[in-house]
Protein backbone atom coordinates (compact mmCIF):
# COMPACT_ATOMS: atom_id res chain seq x y z
CA UNK A 1 0.00 0.00 0.00
CA UNK A 2 1.36 3.39 -0.98
CA UNK A 3 2.02 6.06 1.63
CA UNK A 4 -0.33 8.51 -0.08
CA UNK A 5 -3.29 7.09 -1.89
CA UNK A 6 -5.89 9.30 -3.53
CA UNK A 7 -8.94 7.37 -4.65
CA UNK A 8 -11.61 8.55 -7.08
CA UNK A 9 -11.97 12.11 -5.78
CA UNK A 10 -14.82 14.21 -7.14
CA UNK A 11 -15.75 17.81 -6.39
CA UNK A 12 -18.42 20.02 -7.82
CA UNK A 13 -18.87 23.77 -7.24
CA UNK A 14 -22.46 24.44 -8.23
CA UNK A 15 -22.69 23.61 -11.94
CA UNK A 16 -18.91 23.33 -12.36
CA UNK A 17 -17.32 19.90 -12.02
CA UNK A 18 -13.87 20.98 -10.87
CA UNK A 19 -12.60 17.48 -10.13
CA UNK A 20 -14.28 14.60 -11.99
CA UNK A 21 -12.27 11.53 -11.17
CA UNK A 22 -8.83 11.85 -9.67
CA UNK A 23 -6.75 8.95 -8.40
CA UNK A 24 -3.01 8.68 -7.85
CA UNK A 25 -0.55 7.32 -5.33
CA UNK A 26 2.91 8.19 -4.04
CA UNK A 27 5.39 6.21 -1.97
CA UNK A 28 6.93 7.67 1.18
CA UNK A 29 9.64 10.21 0.33
CA UNK A 30 8.45 10.73 -3.23
CA UNK A 31 7.65 14.04 -4.86
CA UNK A 32 4.46 13.83 -6.86
CA UNK A 33 3.80 16.70 -9.26
CA UNK A 34 0.32 17.54 -10.49
CA UNK A 35 0.63 19.43 -13.74
CA UNK A 36 -1.95 20.74 -16.15
CA UNK A 37 -3.29 23.89 -17.78
CA UNK A 38 -5.03 26.44 -15.57
CA UNK A 39 -8.54 25.43 -14.61
CA UNK A 40 -7.83 21.71 -14.89
CA UNK A 41 -8.64 21.08 -11.22
CA UNK A 42 -5.14 20.62 -9.86
CA UNK A 43 -5.39 23.28 -7.15
CA UNK A 44 -8.84 22.01 -6.16
CA UNK A 45 -7.37 18.51 -5.83
CA UNK A 46 -4.64 19.88 -3.57
CA UNK A 47 -7.22 21.69 -1.42
CA UNK A 48 -9.17 18.45 -1.09
CA UNK A 49 -6.00 16.75 0.14
CA UNK A 50 -5.43 19.53 2.69
CA UNK A 51 -9.04 19.44 3.87
CA UNK A 52 -9.88 23.04 2.97
CA UNK A 53 -12.66 21.71 0.77
CA UNK A 54 -14.57 18.45 1.20
CA UNK A 55 -14.79 16.01 -1.73
CA UNK A 56 -18.26 14.96 -2.92
CA UNK A 57 -16.95 11.42 -3.03
CA UNK A 58 -13.66 9.55 -2.98
CA UNK A 59 -11.05 9.03 -0.28
CA UNK A 60 -7.61 10.26 0.72
CA UNK A 61 -5.40 7.80 2.61
CA UNK A 62 -2.14 8.78 4.29
CA UNK A 63 -0.05 6.01 5.80
CA UNK A 64 -2.96 3.62 5.30
CA UNK A 65 -5.38 5.77 7.30
CA UNK A 66 -8.45 7.41 5.77
CA UNK A 67 -8.16 11.11 6.54
CA UNK A 68 -11.10 12.27 4.38
CA UNK A 69 -13.42 13.09 7.30
CA UNK A 70 -10.74 14.96 9.32
CA UNK A 71 -10.67 18.79 9.53
CA UNK A 72 -7.46 20.39 8.18
CA UNK A 73 -5.96 20.99 11.63
CA UNK A 74 -5.99 17.28 12.44
CA UNK A 75 -4.43 15.98 9.24
CA UNK A 76 -0.78 16.75 9.92
CA UNK A 77 -0.34 18.09 6.39
CA UNK A 78 1.75 21.16 5.61
CA UNK A 79 0.59 23.58 2.91
CA UNK A 80 2.59 26.21 1.01
CA UNK A 81 0.25 28.72 -0.62
CA UNK A 82 0.61 30.27 -4.03
CA UNK A 83 0.86 33.78 -2.56
CA UNK A 84 2.42 32.38 0.64
CA UNK A 85 -0.38 33.69 2.94
CA UNK A 86 2.08 34.83 5.60
CA UNK A 87 0.36 36.41 8.60
CA UNK A 88 0.97 40.13 8.12
CA UNK A 89 0.63 40.86 11.84
CA UNK A 90 3.41 38.45 12.85
CA UNK A 91 7.16 38.59 12.34
CA UNK A 92 9.00 35.88 10.41
CA UNK A 93 9.74 34.20 13.71
CA UNK A 94 6.09 34.45 14.77
CA UNK A 95 4.95 33.03 11.44
CA UNK A 96 7.26 30.04 11.61
CA UNK A 97 6.41 29.39 15.28
CA UNK A 98 2.67 29.63 14.58
CA UNK A 99 2.08 25.91 14.20
CA UNK A 100 4.39 24.89 17.06
CA UNK A 101 2.05 24.35 19.94
CA UNK A 102 2.53 22.43 23.13
CA UNK A 103 6.25 23.16 23.06
CA UNK A 104 8.19 25.06 25.70
CA UNK A 105 9.29 28.55 24.70
CA UNK A 106 12.94 27.54 24.46
CA UNK A 107 12.19 24.48 22.33
CA UNK A 108 10.03 26.59 20.05
CA UNK A 109 12.78 29.15 19.55
CA UNK A 110 15.24 26.39 18.87
CA UNK A 111 13.05 24.73 16.25
CA UNK A 112 12.39 28.08 14.53
CA UNK A 113 16.09 28.91 14.54
CA UNK A 114 16.94 25.50 13.14
CA UNK A 115 14.45 25.85 10.27
CA UNK A 116 15.47 29.38 9.40
CA UNK A 117 19.12 28.36 9.40
CA UNK A 118 18.33 25.35 7.23
CA UNK A 119 16.67 27.61 4.67
CA UNK A 120 19.44 30.21 4.94
CA UNK A 121 17.23 33.02 6.24
CA UNK A 122 18.25 33.15 9.92
CA UNK A 123 18.84 36.90 9.74
CA UNK A 124 15.23 37.57 8.70
CA UNK A 125 13.69 36.37 11.99
CA UNK A 126 12.62 39.79 13.35
CA UNK A 127 11.33 41.13 10.03
CA UNK A 128 7.71 41.36 8.94
CA UNK A 129 6.28 39.83 5.76
CA UNK A 130 5.88 43.14 3.95
CA UNK A 131 9.60 43.79 4.44
CA UNK A 132 10.60 40.64 2.53
CA UNK A 133 11.20 39.97 -1.14
CA UNK A 134 9.07 37.38 -2.90
CA UNK A 135 11.84 34.78 -2.73
CA UNK A 136 12.32 35.38 0.99
CA UNK A 137 8.58 35.12 1.61
CA UNK A 138 8.61 31.83 -0.22
CA UNK A 139 11.27 30.42 2.11
CA UNK A 140 9.43 31.66 5.19
CA UNK A 141 6.24 30.00 3.94
CA UNK A 142 8.15 26.75 3.47
CA UNK A 143 9.69 27.01 6.95
CA UNK A 144 6.28 27.69 8.48
CA UNK A 145 4.73 24.66 6.79
CA UNK A 146 7.63 22.41 7.82
CA UNK A 147 7.83 23.56 11.44
CA UNK A 148 5.20 21.18 12.91
CA UNK A 149 6.94 18.25 11.12
CA UNK A 150 4.09 17.35 8.75
CA UNK A 151 3.84 13.83 7.30
CA UNK A 152 3.00 15.27 3.91
CA UNK A 153 3.78 18.62 2.31
CA UNK A 154 1.51 20.22 -0.28
CA UNK A 155 2.83 23.03 -2.48
CA UNK A 156 0.42 25.10 -4.58
CA UNK A 157 2.42 26.77 -7.38
CA UNK A 158 4.95 28.13 -4.89
CA UNK A 159 7.15 29.61 -7.61
CA UNK A 160 4.48 31.46 -9.58
CA UNK A 161 5.29 34.83 -7.98
CA UNK A 162 9.01 34.60 -8.80
CA UNK A 163 10.94 35.56 -11.91
CA UNK A 164 12.16 32.90 -14.29
CA UNK A 165 15.84 32.82 -13.23
CA UNK A 166 15.04 32.60 -9.51
CA UNK A 167 12.46 29.94 -10.26
CA UNK A 168 15.05 27.77 -11.95
CA UNK A 169 17.50 28.09 -9.03
CA UNK A 170 14.85 27.40 -6.41
CA UNK A 171 13.60 24.37 -8.30
CA UNK A 172 16.87 22.51 -7.80
CA UNK A 173 17.16 23.78 -4.25
CA UNK A 174 13.64 22.64 -3.34
CA UNK A 175 14.14 19.15 -4.75
CA UNK A 176 17.43 18.81 -2.96
CA UNK A 177 15.88 20.05 0.28
CA UNK A 178 12.84 17.76 0.19
CA UNK A 179 15.00 14.76 -0.69
CA UNK A 180 17.30 15.61 2.22
CA UNK A 181 14.33 15.57 4.60
CA UNK A 182 12.86 12.45 2.99
CA UNK A 183 9.50 14.18 3.00
CA UNK A 184 6.58 13.09 0.81
CA UNK A 185 5.27 16.04 -1.18
CA UNK A 186 2.59 16.92 -3.70
CA UNK A 187 3.52 19.87 -5.85
CA UNK A 188 1.12 21.68 -8.17
CA UNK A 189 2.32 23.65 -11.17
CA UNK A 190 1.33 24.59 -14.69
CA UNK A 191 4.98 24.92 -15.77
CA UNK A 192 5.95 21.74 -17.65
CA UNK A 193 9.69 22.26 -17.21
CA UNK A 194 9.29 22.68 -13.46
CA UNK A 195 7.06 19.60 -13.36
CA UNK A 196 9.56 17.41 -15.24
CA UNK A 197 12.48 18.65 -13.14
CA UNK A 198 10.88 18.20 -9.72
CA UNK A 199 8.83 15.04 -10.04
CA UNK A 200 9.49 11.49 -8.98
CA UNK A 201 5.95 10.83 -10.12
CA UNK A 202 4.20 13.03 -12.64
CA UNK A 203 0.42 13.27 -12.92
CA UNK A 204 -0.89 15.21 -15.92
CA UNK A 205 -4.38 16.59 -15.39
CA UNK A 206 -6.93 17.83 -17.87
CA UNK A 207 -10.50 18.99 -17.29
CA UNK A 208 -10.81 17.46 -13.84
CA UNK A 209 -9.21 14.11 -14.65
CA UNK A 210 -5.75 12.60 -14.44
CA UNK A 211 -4.78 11.65 -18.00
CA UNK A 212 -1.55 9.89 -17.15
CA UNK A 213 0.57 9.09 -14.09
CA UNK A 214 4.10 7.80 -14.09
CA UNK A 215 7.78 8.65 -13.80
CA UNK A 216 8.43 11.91 -15.69
CA UNK A 217 10.68 10.29 -18.27
CA UNK A 218 8.08 7.73 -19.12
CA UNK A 219 5.26 10.26 -19.35
CA UNK A 220 7.41 12.47 -21.55
CA UNK A 221 8.62 9.70 -23.83
CA UNK A 222 5.53 7.51 -23.84
CA UNK A 223 2.51 9.78 -23.55
CA UNK A 224 -0.74 7.89 -23.81
CA UNK A 225 -2.83 10.71 -25.25
CA UNK A 226 -2.18 13.51 -27.76
CA UNK A 227 -2.97 16.02 -24.99
CA UNK A 228 -0.23 14.71 -22.71
CA UNK A 229 2.17 14.56 -25.63
CA UNK A 230 1.53 18.18 -26.59
CA UNK A 231 1.40 19.51 -23.04
CA UNK A 232 4.81 18.25 -21.98
CA UNK A 233 6.82 19.42 -24.99
CA UNK A 234 6.94 20.11 -28.71
CA UNK A 235 4.86 17.48 -30.46
CA UNK A 236 4.12 16.58 -34.04
CA UNK A 237 0.73 14.94 -34.27
CA UNK A 238 -0.28 13.57 -37.66
CA UNK A 239 -3.53 11.79 -38.41
CA UNK A 240 -3.04 8.29 -39.82
CA UNK A 241 -4.44 4.79 -40.30
CA UNK A 242 -3.03 1.46 -39.09
CA UNK A 243 -2.15 -0.92 -41.93
CA UNK A 244 -0.72 -3.86 -40.00
CA UNK A 245 0.52 -4.91 -36.53
CA UNK A 246 3.88 -6.63 -36.12
CA UNK A 247 5.54 -7.46 -32.74
CA UNK A 248 3.76 -4.62 -30.94
CA UNK A 249 4.66 -2.19 -33.67
CA UNK A 250 2.21 -0.72 -36.12
CA UNK A 251 2.72 0.03 -39.75
CA UNK A 252 0.90 3.28 -40.27
CA UNK A 253 -0.05 5.14 -43.38
CA UNK A 254 0.69 8.80 -42.82
CA UNK A 255 1.48 11.81 -45.04
CA UNK A 256 1.54 9.59 -48.09
CA UNK A 257 4.22 7.31 -46.60
CA UNK A 258 4.33 4.19 -44.45
CA UNK A 259 5.85 4.67 -41.02
CA UNK A 260 6.64 2.18 -38.29
CA UNK A 261 5.37 3.33 -34.88
CA UNK A 262 5.40 1.85 -31.36
CA UNK A 263 1.84 0.90 -30.52
CA UNK A 264 -0.10 -0.84 -27.81
CA UNK A 265 -3.54 -2.32 -28.21
CA UNK A 266 -4.67 -1.32 -31.67
CA UNK A 267 -5.95 -3.19 -34.70
CA UNK A 268 -5.45 -2.86 -38.45
CA UNK A 269 -7.79 -0.27 -39.97
CA UNK A 270 -7.89 1.85 -36.77
CA UNK A 271 -7.65 5.62 -37.21
CA UNK A 272 -5.64 7.78 -34.82
CA UNK A 273 -2.56 9.93 -34.50
CA UNK A 274 1.11 9.40 -35.10
CA UNK A 275 3.21 11.31 -32.59
CA UNK A 276 6.90 12.22 -32.69
CA UNK A 277 8.95 14.89 -30.95
CA UNK A 278 11.22 17.15 -33.08
CA UNK A 279 14.30 15.45 -31.64
CA UNK A 280 12.97 12.06 -32.83
CA UNK A 281 13.26 13.19 -36.45
CA UNK A 282 16.52 13.64 -38.33
CA UNK A 283 17.01 16.24 -41.04
CA UNK A 284 18.82 14.44 -43.85
CA UNK A 285 18.12 11.64 -46.31
CA UNK A 286 14.64 10.23 -45.60
CA UNK A 287 11.21 9.55 -47.01
CA UNK A 288 9.57 12.83 -45.93
CA UNK A 289 10.02 16.29 -47.44
CA UNK A 290 9.47 19.45 -45.39
CA UNK A 291 8.83 22.93 -46.81
CA UNK A 292 10.45 25.22 -44.26
CA UNK A 293 8.47 28.37 -43.40
CA UNK A 294 10.46 29.68 -40.45
CA UNK A 295 13.82 28.79 -38.96
CA UNK A 296 14.53 29.91 -35.38
CA UNK A 297 18.00 29.86 -33.82
CA UNK A 298 17.67 28.72 -30.20
CA UNK A 299 21.33 28.63 -29.15
CA UNK A 300 22.12 24.92 -29.09
CA UNK A 301 19.98 24.04 -32.13
CA UNK A 302 17.73 25.38 -34.83
CA UNK A 303 14.00 24.90 -34.73
CA UNK A 304 12.33 24.57 -38.13
CA UNK A 305 8.64 25.23 -38.60
CA UNK A 306 7.60 23.54 -41.79
CA UNK A 307 4.83 21.69 -43.58
CA UNK A 308 4.87 18.21 -45.00
CA UNK A 309 2.10 17.12 -47.33
CA UNK A 310 -0.02 19.93 -45.91
CA UNK A 311 0.60 18.82 -42.32
CA UNK A 312 2.43 21.16 -39.91
CA UNK A 313 5.71 19.82 -38.57
CA UNK A 314 8.38 21.10 -36.17
CA UNK A 315 11.91 19.77 -36.66
CA UNK A 316 15.14 20.16 -34.78
CA UNK A 317 18.35 20.67 -36.75
CA UNK A 318 21.98 21.14 -35.66
CA UNK A 319 22.58 23.90 -38.24
CA UNK A 320 20.63 26.29 -40.40
CA UNK A 321 18.83 24.70 -43.36
CA UNK A 322 20.62 25.50 -46.65
CA UNK A 323 17.45 25.29 -48.72
CA UNK A 324 13.72 25.91 -48.33
CA UNK A 325 12.98 22.24 -48.88
CA UNK A 326 14.66 19.62 -46.70
CA UNK A 327 14.21 15.86 -46.53
CA UNK A 328 13.92 14.15 -43.15
CA UNK A 329 13.43 10.76 -41.53
CA UNK A 330 11.41 9.89 -38.43
CA UNK A 331 13.55 7.64 -36.23
CA UNK A 332 11.00 7.05 -33.50
CA UNK A 333 7.23 7.48 -33.43
CA UNK A 334 4.31 6.50 -31.21
CA UNK A 335 0.86 5.46 -32.34
CA UNK A 336 -1.81 7.22 -30.23
CA UNK A 337 -5.39 6.23 -30.71
CA UNK A 338 -8.18 8.71 -30.15
CA UNK A 339 -8.71 12.21 -31.43
CA UNK A 340 -5.95 14.73 -31.80
CA UNK A 341 -5.34 16.93 -28.75
Amino acid sequence: MSFLSVQALRKRFGPVEAVREVSFAAEAGEILVLVGPSGCGKTTTLRLLAGFDRPDCGRVLVGGRDITPLPPERRGIGFVFQEYALFPHLSVEGNVAFGLRGLARAERRERVGELLAMLGIAELAPRFPHELSAGQQQRVALARALAPRPRLLLLDEPFSALDAALRRDLRAELRNFLKGLGLTAVHVTHDREEALALADVLAVMRAGRVEQVGPPEEVYNRPRTPFVAAFLGRANLWPGRVLAILNGRAEVEVAGQVLCAEAAGTAPGARGVVFFRPEWAEVGPGPFVAHVQTALFLGDHWELHASCQGLPVVLSAPCAPCAGVVPFAVTRALWLSGPEG
Binding site: G51, F52, E73, F79, A85, A145
Partner: peptide
Amino acid sequence: SLEEAARSLGLSPWGVARRV
Protein backbone atom coordinates in the same frame (compact mmCIF):
# COMPACT_ATOMS: atom_id res chain seq x y z
CA SER B 1 -5.87 31.66 2.63
CA LEU B 2 -4.49 33.01 5.93
CA GLU B 3 -7.26 31.19 7.75
CA GLU B 4 -6.59 28.04 5.74
CA ALA B 5 -2.89 28.31 6.52
CA ALA B 6 -3.71 28.49 10.22
CA ARG B 7 -6.00 25.44 9.96
CA SER B 8 -3.28 23.46 8.18
CA LEU B 9 -0.90 24.40 10.99
CA GLY B 10 -3.20 22.74 13.50
CA LEU B 11 -5.54 25.47 14.78
CA SER B 12 -9.20 24.80 15.47
CA PRO B 13 -11.80 27.22 14.00
CA TRP B 14 -11.98 28.97 17.37
CA GLY B 15 -8.19 29.21 17.51
CA VAL B 16 -8.18 30.73 14.01
CA ALA B 17 -10.70 33.36 15.10
CA ARG B 18 -8.59 34.27 18.12
CA ARG B 19 -5.08 34.17 16.65
CA VAL B 20 -5.59 35.16 13.01
